[in-house]
Simulated scan of single mutants.
Amino acid sequence: MRGERLDKLLARLGLGSRKEVARLVRAGRVRVAGEAVRDPGFHVPEGASLELDGKPLAVRRHHHLLLHKPAGYVTSRTEGPSVYALLSGFPTRDLAPVGRLDKDTEGLLLFTTDGELLHRLTHPRHKVAKRYLVHLERPATEEDQRAFAEGLSLDGERLLPAALSLGEDPTRVELVLREGRFHQVKRMFQARGNRVLYLKRLSLGPLELGDLSKGEARYLTPEEEETLYRAVGLGGQDAQGEL
């Protein structure tokens, strides 16, 4: 069975665009099964080891990308400006967003090529926590806290309990949800007679946005991948795989 083209495989591993990885290959920096290969169109045999600059490359079944989405971008391939425009240099063909962030919402947006992981992260049955920073028009109250904790009703349906944290400034709050309905945060506060002025997702399950700059994206670390899979009951599913 004929293997995958070397330039396509290296691009899929996140080492750059096809053009960029072709330059790496032509410079003799890539070895396949211990031998330097300078042809980007070389077909890599199944199970062959890969090295870049003498260091082994881990071939994974799936890829997971974390983006700090700025306001003004839509979570869509077909509408614009699209969040995919921010992923220049990453292989995006099979990457799907884990849920959506509104155009004016900022923060953590995860992409993955693993359909089962995506399903578990987004299905309400798995109750994956999502934490948001919310700026409000009016101060939130302890009554809002109790109402969210009991589970609001929207459109005749009861929401899962949500945790609202009040700090020194009750117009700057954090909210933790375990589901992801359409415009849910905005509609929850609207139901309480308040209005969201600014919204930012800080975390998704065990993943934290951290200090990633707006508009920047990065691959998850192996430790983050393992923690994420285990959090949704898929421990070991994204282990290193064969070509």
Score class of each variant (00 low, 15 high):
96 A>G: 09
206 P>N: 08
153 S>A: 11
3 G>H: 06
57 L>D: 01
37 V>I: 14
59 V>W: 03
174 E>K: 03
7 D>W: 05
232 V>N: 07
1 M>A: 13
147 A>R: 13
65 L>T: 00
224 E>Q: 14
80 G>A: 15
164 L>G: 00
226 E>Q: 11
213 S>M: 11
154 L>C: 07
10 L>K: 10
33 A>W: 02
185 V>K: 03
103 K>F: 04
149 A>I: 09
104 D>E: 15
105 T>K: 06
25 V>H: 03
181 R>N: 06
164 L>T: 02
63 H>V: 05
21 V>F: 01
68 H>Y: 13
25 V>F: 00
41 G>T: 13
92 T>D: 04
21 V>A: 06
241 G>D: 07
48 A>M: 09
202 L>A: 09
209 L>I: 13
52 L>T: 12
126 H>V: 09
70 P>F: 02
57 L>M: 10
79 E>L: 15
70 P>R: 04
133 L>K: 13
210 G>S: 12
34 G>E: 12
111 F>Q: 03
140 A>I: 11
65 L>Q: 02
43 H>W: 05
171 T>W: 04
43 H>K: 15
26 R>M: 05
189 F>A: 04
221 T>K: 11
64 H>G: 02
194 N>K: 13
137 E>D: 12
231 A>W: 04
146 R>K: 15
217 A>V: 08
189 F>H: 04
161 P>K: 04
67 L>I: 10
69 K>S: 05
36 A>E: 11
112 T>Y: 02
93 R>F: 07
53 D>G: 10
123 H>R: 10
209 L>E: 00
140 A>Q: 02
231 A>K: 01
27 A>F: 07
16 G>M: 04
159 L>N: 00
57 L>S: 08
114 D>R: 08
207 L>T: 07
18 R>W: 06
4 E>K: 13
27 A>K: 14
120 R>G: 08
232 V>P: 01
234 L>P: 03
86 L>K: 09
12 R>E: 06
150 E>C: 09
199 L>T: 05
228 L>Y: 05
111 F>H: 04
24 L>H: 14
178 R>V: 12
87 L>Y: 02
109 L>D: 01
169 D>M: 08
104 D>R: 10
86 L>H: 07
62 H>P: 03
92 T>R: 09
94 D>C: 04
181 R>T: 07
129 A>Y: 05
208 E>V: 11
157 E>N: 12
235 G>Y: 02
92 T>V: 15
161 P>R: 08
58 A>K: 14
210 G>I: 13
150 E>L: 11
230 R>A: 15
11 A>T: 12
110 L>D: 03
14 G>K: 11
171 T>K: 14
3 G>W: 00
86 L>S: 09
61 R>S: 09
81 P>S: 12
31 R>K: 14
209 L>N: 03
84 Y>L: 09
10 L>F: 08
